[in-house]
Structure formats: C-alpha cells, structure tokens
Design a protein around this nucleic acid. Structure first.
Length: 506
RNA sequence: GGCGACGUAGCCAAGUGGUAAGGCAGAGGUCUGCAAAACCUCCAUUCACCAGUUCAAAUCUGGUCGUCGCCUCCA
C-alpha cells in the first residue's frame, strides 16, 4: 500500500509522490528561540520526528531541514530587557531546546540553518521579488505587494478582499495594501543589522523560511510542515514569497499538526495554563511525554492535556519496560533450549505485526492505529515470557525472540523502547514516588522490615507492612527470584496532589 | 462577521458507505503464603440531535444544538 498524506492546500489525502523517486525533501518550521520551549513545541517536533523516521524506515533518503529563527522582534526585545546580545540569547535558548529535544528522542535534522547565517540568500530573494515587481522599497523598508500575487490566500483559503475587510492591523499609509508585509526592515537603534541594497536593516518574519528552504532543498520540494497556527500568515506568505520569486510551485505537500489544549482551551501564557517542556520533565520521564504526544491523537487533531492523561501514559510506558525486562530475562537462558521448528504460539501476531503497523502509518501517519499491533505484541510477549511448562519453553522463546525483533524494528520509528529496562523503571519509580510525595529511602526501609518478617514466616507482620505501603499508594511485587519490586499506583499521585492543600508544609 | 476543526462506551481515542480498533478504569477468573504484576474472559444493537439519499450510513446531503481554533505574535 502506498503512503498517503493529507495536504492542507488541497484539503485532501492523496498518494505521496516525491519529486525524485526514493528521495524526500522536507522542511519544518523551527523555533524562535526567545524563551524555553513549551509543550506545543514538544508536540510539534515529536510529530515530525515520527514522520521523518517513518519516511526513512520506508526506504526514502530524506533531507530534513529545520530552521532557527534567531533574528526576530521577540528575541531583540527580550535581549534588550536583559541587556544581552540577541544572538547570545538565541544561542542560550537553542541550548535549552536541544536538551529538551534530545531527551524526547527527537532526531536532529540533516540541516539546521539560522537566519543569521542566511542573510545573503534572504537579500537575494528580496531583490528577486523586487525585480519581479511584487516587492517595493519605502524608506529602507521593503514590502511584499500581496495584490501582485494572484494566488495570495490559497493555503488559508482567505480571499484577499475578505481579509481587507477584517484587517485589524493599524494601517501603515506607506503600504499599498494593509495586508502587505515586511520583507526587510530598516535598522532601528538597539537592533542587529546587516548591510543591504536598501541600507542597513534586518529580515522581516516569513522571508527567512522561504530563503532557507529554497537554499537547502531547491525551489520546489516535497513536504513542508509546522503547527496549524502557521497556516496564516506565515505559510501563506512563504508561498507568496517563494512562488512570487521563482514562478515555480513551492511545496507539494503541506502538513500541519494540531494544538495542545489544556481543559479544552488553547495553551497560552495569557491564560496562565502554560507549561514548558522542562516543567513536565521534572515530573515525568521524557519517554512518557513522547509516548503521550505521539499516541494520544492523530497528529492533525487537538490533544487535550492533563495530569491524569500523563499518569496513564506513564503507567503504560512502565508496562512496556516491565515487559521488556521480563522478556529479556526469559530469553537470557534460551540459548540452552533445544532448537525449535514447529508452529509458534502467537504466530498470527508475529505474521501480521509489520503489515498492520505499516498500513496505519501509510495512512497519513496514523500513530494511534499503528500502536494497535504494538499493544498486541506486548501482551503476547508477556504471555510467552510467563511460560512455565518446560515443554513449551523452546517454542515460546522462539516466538518471543521473533516478536521482540519485530518490535525493535518498528522502534526505529517510534523510538520509545531503546532505554535499558532496569534503568528506565528505576527512573520511573523515583519520579512517581516524588509525585506522590514519598521517600524511596522510607520505602526501602519498610521493604526490608517486610523481608525480615517473611523470612521468619511472620505472615501477619509482613502483610501489615504491605498494607501500610499500599495505604500510601505503594504496591509491591514479590518476584520469583526472591526480590521485591515496588511501584507507585498511578492514582496515588493525583491523591497526593489533592491532599496537598490540607496537609500544609512540613 | 469570514474561514476551519470537532462532538463515538465512565475516561482517552481509531474508524469516510457494508454492519463499532486500541488504551485506561470496572467486573469475573488463572497464578500467588496472602498480594501485586502478568495473562484469560466480559464490558457501545450504537456513534450530539433531526430529516434525507441508499439494498446498506458513525461514515454521504441538508438543518439544529454544542465545543474549540484561526483571522494580531504563536508549534
């Protein structure tokens, strides 16, 4: 089955046909690094990371470009507040960005251009627009003349005449149309500037993406992606700039991801429902966040975010790693088992796994559906790893090894299962304990007390300790090897939070 | 006002004409000193509401109600 993509421009899903067979050129709008990255960024870049990985997994040679808009009004304003160099502020936030992205398992793009390194190309493109008669200079500023581009509004489906009526921007009388936007801004005090044919100044917003994408991918390329909010004006203007400059079709497939909502409302600083990625990472593993963002919803839909949802995701990821740990232990001694050749248990799961995964992903990257065979595989892995009867063990080990290999293969796309299980689970436990307000040292002390009681076969005493832990939300598991593991019941964290107010501090 | 998205079980959510995936929670069972975990079984005659097209609709058409987003910086 062929890969099908939903294209915002046509509003339809259609077969993906790259410009060059076997190759994909994709561009994703990156961040404006004026502050730390937030949950919305995480959602966006996780989504496109999966797309990037899936394209590669499907055998395409992908060139993935993601920019940094490091010259921008907000960066300049923030840098001036803090009395520092704008590019230094941008670099500081780029470092934070990388820390978050790396933790989330997001692959680095192939090229990461910055505005500050693309000034020459930007100036060249503005000149090209000027000579094409769709840009005009006024007092050192250069504006894009929207009336000179007949397709203006085709992406956001907003005819120009309607936009004029609704335009709320204060009218700059130097503009020929209120919708005209700046390609080049003349120098103002306290701003970084570059020399240009129009005098010293800096690029406007929008032109940088046209210039950077064209410069690294060519005048026409396959995929351009970004958040829904960028459809207008950013991507609309990119089309106007690039197609206005080159006369060529700019992009073949426009992909846009949905937003993060908090309690059904858009996350925003003004509403006070704003989370940075770092905020979440203090409380949950980055893998939990990645899993949640990838699987909660198809990439185009909105995701409603809440602690309860994250708790569920955390529990599910812990289940995956618990399973991996169990299976790896089970397979550890399996080399000694007799070679097995008969029909395998869960043969249907093994046989259909990849086709089901691929079919879902081919349908506009439907990760939620692609997870169905993954869930099924983990259930089968657990069943196999719990095989007790010696007779069945060889068959079970063979089946488990095959299934595990399949899971590992699609994890090149999901990038969820690559941690060491024991390390992951330990990290998960500590974070869960912290969320529930419990001390791991106290838990260990209680477990030691229970171990002593059990050794003496003082069952009532041992059970009392277990009940005491359970009352706090700590559940324990006696393993066959004599060890006792513990976990925080997912609901405990909510309970602890709810009782916070009443408890007071100390 | 213009443009757009969405409304599926207690919760999250997949599913664009052929008779409701998956996950969480819940119930019962297997296992276990007792538990927990894991596994097995069960859990929507129905897809906001109304009308229509069709042999057949959650899926198509029209209307109603409700929620949200964009139109200004924003992933």
């Amino acid at each position: 089955m062929a890969l099908r993509l939903h294209d915002t421009l046509t509003g339809e899903k259609r077969d993906f046909e790259p410009l060059e067979p076997g190759k994909v050129k994709m561009y994703v709008c990156g961040v404006t690094p004026y502050d730390k990255s937030h949950l919305g960024h995480a959602r966006c870049y996780v989504a496109w990371d999966v797309v990037y990985r899936y394209l590669r997994h499907s055998g395409y040679a992908v060139t993935y470009v993601r920019n940094f808009t490091d010259v921008d009004d907000k960066i300049i304003a923030r840098a001036n507040e803090r009395g520092m160099d704008p590019l230094a502020l941008a670099q500081e936030n780029i470092d934070f960005f990388y820390a978050d992205m790396d933790a989330l398992g997001i692959a680095r793009p192939d090229v990461e251009p910055r505005v500050s390194g693309t000034i020459d190309e930007i100036i060249a493109m503005v000149q090209r627009l000027e000579s094409n008669g769709i840009a005009y200079a006024v007092d050192g500023d250069v504006y894009y003349e929207v009336d000179a581009f007949k397709d203006y509004g085709k992406l956001s489906k907003r005819p120009l005449d309607e936009m004029k009526a609704g335009a709320r921007v204060e009218v700059d009388t130097r503009k020929r149309n209120p919708m005209d936007f700046a390609l080049w801004k003349s120098a103002k005090p306290g701003e970084p500037t570059w020399d240009s044919p129009w005098g010293p100044g800096r690029p406007g917003w929008h032109i940088e993406c046209s210039a950077m994408s064209t410069c690294h991918l060519g005048e026409t390329f396959d995929i351009h992606a970004g958040g829904r909010d960028l459809i207008f004006p950013h991507h609309e203007n990119e089309i106007a700039q690039s197609e206005g400059a080159t006369g060529q079709r700019y992009v073949n497939y426009w992909l846009h991801n949905g937003f993060i909502n908090i309690d059904d409302e858009k996350m925003s600083k003004s509403l006070g429902n704003f989370f940075t990625i770092a905020d979440i990472r203090e409380r949950y593993t980055a893998t939990t966040l990645r899993y949640f963002l990838m699987t909660a919803r198809h990439y185009r839909g909105p995701i409603n975010f809440s602690d309860a949802m994250l708790e569920e995701a955390a529990g599910r990821v812990a289940y995956f790693y618990d399973t991996l740990q169990t299976v790896e232990a089970f397979l550890d001694g399996s080399d000694d088992l007799p070679h097995f050749t008969g029909p395998l248990p869960h043969q249907d799961v093994i046989d259909t796994f990849e086709a089901r995964f691929t079919e879902a992903m081919d349908d506009d990257f439907s990760v939620p559906r692609a997870m169905e065979p993954v869930h099924e595989a983990f259930r089968a892995l657990n069943e196999l790893a719990n095989t007790r009867k010696a007779k069945r063990k060889a068959a079970a080990a063979t089946a488990a090894a095959q299934l595990l290999a399949k899971v590992r293969k699609v994890d090149a796309v999901l990038n969820l299962f690559g941690h060491d299980p024991a390390e992951y689970l330990q990290g998960h436990r500590l974070m869960a304990a912290a969320r529930a307000g419990l001390s791991p040292a106290w838990i260990d002390e209680r477990l030691e007390a229970r171990r002593a009681a059990r050794a003496a076969k003082l069952w009532d005493e041992a059970d009392a300790v277990r009940d005491e832990l359970a009352a706090k939300g700590v559940v324990i598991m006696d393993r066959p090897n004599g060890q006792t593991d513990w976990a925080i019941e997912e609901r405990a964290a909510e309970g602890a939070e709810a009782s916070d107010a009443g408890d007071g501090e100390g």
